[in-house]
Write a protein that binds this DNA or RNA. Structure first.
Length: 183
DNA sequence: GCCAACGTTGGC
DNA sequence: GCCAACGTTGGC
C-alpha cells in the first residue's frame, strides 16, 4: 500500500518558535508540541503520516508568511508538555494513561528563497479555497490541497508566473483543480 | 441542549 | 491596542 503523500500547513509564532529556530535544532527536527485544539489534534493524530510535507507559516508577525517546508518524520505520540504543570501548555485534564493531546515530529526540509506573504497568497489565483485564507480561520494545523501546494511552492521559489498581473488572463476560463464542491 | 460569558487567535 | 471570529466553559 503506497500512501499518497499529503500536504499540510503548520502555524508558528516566530517570536516563540521560528523556522530559523527549527533550522538550528539538532537534525533540523523538533516535536510539534502545544497543540490544544481538537480539530488540529485530530489532523495530527489521524491523518498525518511519515513523509507528508507541510508549509511552515509565521503567524503574529509583521509579515505573516509561509517561509519554508518541513517533513513529518514521526507520527502522532503523546504530547508530554500537557503533563507538566510548569509548562505554558499544561492541561490538568490530560493524563499519561490516556493522553488528550498528541504531537508529531517534523524536520525542516527547505527554506524558501522568497517567503510567501499572506497578502501574496490572497492575491494569487487558485488559492481562494485555502483554509488559511478563510474568514475567521484559526486552525494551526490544516490540510493543503495538492494544487495549492504547487502554487505556493512555486511562489516561494520566486516563480512569479502564478501571480495576478503577471499571469496571462489567469482569471479567464476554467482552472485545473477548481472542481471541488462549493461551500 | 441552549447560550452567554470568557479566553484565545491573529490580522491590522 | 483594537477588534472580529472562534472554541471552551459552565449555569440552567
Amino acid at each position: 500500500m503506497t500512501a499518497v503523500r499529503q500536504y499540510w500547513l503548520l502555524k508558528s509564532e516566530p517570536d516563540v518558535f521560528s523556522f530559523d529556530d527549527l533550522w538550528a535544532a539538532p537534525d533540523h527536527t523538533t516535536c510539534w508540541d502545544g497543540i490544544r485544539n481538537y480539530q488540529a489534534r485530530n489532523f495530527m493524530r489521524d491523518d498525518m503520516k511519515r513523509g507528508d510535507l507541510a508549509f511552515f507559516y509565521h503567524s503574529m508577525d509583521d509579515r505573516p508568511a509561509v517561509v519554508g517546508v518541513v517533513e513529518v518524520v514521526r507520527e502522532a505520540y503523546p504530547d508530554h508538555t500537557a503533563f507538566d504543570a510548569r509548562d505554558p501548555h499544561y492541561d490538568p485534564k490530560s493524563n499519561p494513561n490516556s493522553p488528550t493531546w498528541m504531537m508529531v515530529d517534523v524536520r525542516a526540509k527547505e527554506r524558501f528563497p522568497q517567503p510567501v506573504t499572506l497578502q501574496e497568497l490572497r492575491d494569487t489565483p487558485g488559492l481562494e479555497q485555502m483554509e488559511l485564507l478563510r474568514r475567521g480561520s484559526r486552525l494551526s494545523v490544516q490540510p493543503v490541497r495538492a494544487g495549492e501546494w504547487e502554487i505556493v511552492r512555486a511562489l516561494g521559489h520566486g516563480r512569479s508566473d502564478a501571480r495576478r498581473g503577471n499571469a496571462r488572463r489567469a482569471d479567464a476560463g476554467p482552472r485545473v483543480g477548481r472542481g471541488s464542491a462549493p461551500r
